[in-house]
Amino acid sequence: MCLAIPGQIVERSPDHPDLATVEVSRVRRVINVALLADEPLQPGDWVLIHVGFAMSLISEDAAREQLRLLAMLGEDEEAMRELDGLPATSADTP
């Protein structure tokens, strides 16, 4: 719950402006980006994800640091499990 998982935006959908597809360690998942509505999010941008919601826009360097930190804290597997729990396509999101 308190994990911050970095993900890279790979796709925005014009039909679902609140959703985006992100990729983390080659896993693609759909997250909610409504909390970054004030930011012009583009494919290629990195975000920090909390419980399925992108909470902050960060640099690629900061994202790599965060991945490394999760591994050092022994929380990387938990982070991937959390990510696996999120929907794989926007059709699965209510």
């Binding site: 909610n32 419980v51 399925g52 919601f53 499990r81 959390e82 990510l83 729990g85 999120l86 929907p87 699965d92 999101t93 209510p94």
Partner: peptide, 13 residues
């Protein structure tokens, strides 16, 4: 167990 509150809403739908 859910990973996001939206998962809980999805179960409800």
């Amino acid at each position: 167990m859910v990973y996001s509150p939206l998962d809980a809403l999805r179960i409800a739908t």
